[in-house]
């Protein structure tokens, strides 16, 4: 059995070595694939805070992913059309600056998570899942009918947004930026998990009524976790939109929320690198099997089935021999 920290370092090393190899082998598409894996991993790391530590099975996290994407799409769209965004008396200029777009994505997603969390966290179990799903569908259908930003067809962005000091049009530089953000998110997750807040959240997942008897408000703990989780997933949405230079209602789809959960389960629920391993495997299978058959998701389903039945700790659980937390 391998210690989890070694697995974590090996995975991170893989994410450094593979794109560097691709750079020297002149395989930019591999770098793009790695970038896609990193961004999906970031989204799942966000969800893993709510799901893995807090036990919140959210089937509506695509809301935050989509909001982050549309925050990028709308700001960049107004920048490229030179037409300001008019919200009643408020006039906002478009921008191609990634830091500004990221802050917008973080704030928008966090606010949405606050509102959705306040309503949905009053319920538990299957009702929580259904409410978050309902919010996801609301945003999905709203975006379909939002003709100002492409409606069902989505919105294309013709430029890659800027980051100070970097040429983000270079795949390797954009990849490095995304990897740095992912590492930051992993750092947040790691600190959070062992902080008094993270421990209390973990305790609230196990026994909310017992947490109350030691003076902690489980609703407040879960809400804060949900907001942090939503904000990180929103940030990943902005990066995803930048990678594809395209946003569409599919970013809000419940299938995407489901995919994020699948990534976490495959890698290991509540494990630091679980979402990263899950995302890497997902993108690799999508690329390798997707070229052979359009039914590649069937094979992903088989893997998921085997893991759920025989390895509740996911791939990290298999490698370490330790099951993950019960969610």
């Amino acid at each position: 059995m391998i210690a989890e920290r070694w697995i974590n370092w090996i995975v991170l090393l893989g994410f450094v070595v593979l794109p560097l190899w691709a750079l020297f082998a002149d395989e930019p598409f591999t770098i793009t694939l790695a970038t896609r894996a990193v961004i999906l991993a970031l989204a799942a790391v966000g969800l893993n805070i709510a799901l893995g530590i807090g036990g919140l099975v959210s089937l509506g996290h695509a809301v935050f992913f989509g909001l982050g994407g549309y925050a990028m799409g709308i700001l960049a769209h107004h920048a490229q059309t030179y037409a300001p965004l008019e919200l009643g008396p408020l006039v906002i200029e478009g921008t191609k600056s990634m830091p500004i777009i990221w802050v917008t994505a973080l704030v928008t997603s966090a606010l949405a998570a606050l509102v959705i969390g306040l309503l949905s966290l009053r319920t538990t179990g299957v009702y929580f899942i259904m409410i978050t799903l309902a919010f996801g569908q609301m945003f999905f259908f709203f975006s379909i009918s939002w003709s100002a930003y492409g409606g069902e067809d989505g919105l294309s962005i013709y430029v890659r947004n800027d980051f100070p000091g970097l040429n983000t049009l270079q795949p390797i530089q954009f990849f490095g930026l995304c990897l740095a953000v992912l590492c930051l998110a992993l750092g947040i997750h790691s600190r959070l998990r062992t902080s008094p807040f993270g421990l209390a959240l973990n305790a609230a997942r196990q026994a909310p009524e017992r947490v109350e008897t030691v003076g902690l408000n489980p609703m407040r703990l879960k809400l804060l976790a949900f907001v942090i989780s939503g904000a990180l997933t929103g940030l990943s949405g902005a990066l995803f939109a930048d990678l594809n230079r395209f946003v569409s209602p599919t970013m809000f789809s419940w299938q995407l929320s489901g995919e994020l959960i699948v990534l976490i389960i495959i890698g290991g629920v509540g494990r630091l690198m679980g979402p990263v391993i899950g995302a890497a495997l997902f993108v690799a299978l999508e690329h390798l099997l997707g070229g052979l058959t359009e039914f590649w998701l069937v094979w992903l389903g088989v893997i998921l089935l085997l893991i759920v039945l025989f390895a509740r700790g996911g791939i990290i659980g298999i490698l370490t021999g330790k099951a993950g937390p019960n969610v």
Binding site: P196, L199, A200, N202, A203, Q206, A207, R210, V211, E212, T213, V214, G215, L216, N217, P218, P325, N326
Partner: peptide
């Protein structure tokens, strides 16, 4: 939880520790 924060510390019947947390984590969490 507000009652507990006033200064009532309860040791419930049947122990009821947070099973997935370590001893130290159980103590720090509260």
């Amino acid at each position: 939880h507000a009652v507990a924060r006033l200064g009532l510390g309860l040791v419930p019947e049947g122990r009821r520790c947070f099973r997935d947390l370590t001893v130290e984590e159980n103590l720090i969490a509260a």
